[in-house]
């Protein structure tokens, strides 16, 4: 595997992020951004106590975001653990909302390759449209890049038609240089998407890490013409944050990525905050959180 110049200047990234975050998004452009962000959400529940009913409730929410605003887009996908894929698939029948399944001994990835392959196969057979795998961070940090790359390639092979999202778990990779290297490994090994975090490790998605991943995606596109998607996940709960990510996306990757096919937010409470902002934009009034369903 040949990596490009993967050097990242952390201070420079911070400055660029600060500069992008100072963009002022108002009026129609804000309205558009809110709708776009909503359509990019992977509505997520990833807890040990998740049950079929919990997932059914979430699926209903995904397709009925706000009854007073029927023109709103649906969220992009529901993201669940592998054993709940069937339930979600069934509950979402007839809608355009995709089912994403985390897999490969999520969130730690501490399992052998055969178990991981089995898990991914089963999730795909159960109807998952998207597989969110984790990389083996221990192997990565010990310098065994080939192991990490091989693992991603093997998993990609058993995904079938399902899209593969590769979670780097950037909170465990320590440096932005590592984030860049891991991004390139994942992209070159066949990832359809690269994703920042499991949401189980702090820090989860940060604008700095996301920008570095965007730049890796852009550089791959410049060289190969291939479009790889991106999913920041964890810690994005407010509309304002989501809009700042979209600004970063617009000015780093541009038009082709400004849609749910190539950009997602992994989030649970973000959807309600965006809905609250959309209601505010339309009525001029902030409503109580009691008016937004919690599923």
């Amino acid at each position: 595997m040949i990596l490009s110049n993967t050097k990242i200047d952390a201070i420079g990234i911070k400055e660029r992020v600060a500069r992008l975050q100072s963009r002022s998004i108002k009026a129609t452009s804000k309205q558009q951004a809110l709708n776009l962000a909503l359509s990019m959400i992977d509505l997520t529940t990833l807890e040990g106590r998740d049950s079929p009913n919990k997932v059914r409730q979430l699926c209903y929410k995904a397709t009925h975001l706000h009854e007073n605003f029927p023109d709103l887009p649906n969220v992009a996908a529901i993201c669940v653990y592998a054993p709940l894929v069937k339930t979600a698939r069934h509950a979402l029948q007839g809608s355009n909302v995709k089912v994403a399944s985390v897999a490969t001994a999520f969130p730690s990835g501490m399992s052998d390759i055969d178990s991981k392959l089995d898990e991914v196969k089963r999730a795909a057979e159960d109807g998952a449209n998207e597989i969110d795998m984790v990389i083996s961070r221990g192997r990565f940090l010990s310098g065994d890049y080939n192991y990490v790359a091989d693992e991603i390639q093997k998993i990609k092979e058993v995904c079938g038609s399902a899209h593969l999202k590769v979670i780097l778990e950037t909170g465990e990779l320590v440096t932005l240089d590592n984030v860049r290297i891991a991004s390139e490994l994942a992209i070159q090994s066949g990832a359809d998407f690269i994703k920042t975090s499991t949401g189980k490790v702090q820090p989860a998605a940060t604008p700095e890490v996301t920008l570095v991943m965007m730049q890796a995606i852009r550089d791959h596109y410049i060289k190969s013409g291939k479009l790889v998607g991106l999913k920041p996940a964890g810690g994005i709960s407010k509309s304002k944050q989501a809009i700042q990510y979209l600004v970063m996306l617009r000015e780093t990757l541009g038009q082709s990525w400004l849609n749910p096919k190539l950009f997602r937010f992994g989030a649970s409470s973000l959807a309600n905050d965006i809905l609250m902002q959309i209601v505010k934009q339309n009525t001029g009034i902030y409503q109580s959180t009691d008016y937004f369903s919690l599923d």
């Binding site: 963009r23 002022s24 998004i25 108002k26 009026a27 129609t28 452009s29 804000k30 558009q32 951004a33 776009l36 852009r218 596109y221 410049i222 060289k223 190969s224 013409g225 979209l246 617009r250 000015e251 990757l253 541009g254 038009q255 082709s256 400004l258």
Partner: peptide
């Protein structure tokens, strides 16, 4: 080298 399309549908409104 492939160029990005940086002329996006989503534009920023004036923020004077």
């Amino acid at each position: 080298m492939n160029s990005l399309n940086l002329q996006t549908d989503w534009q920023y409104d004036p923020a004077p």
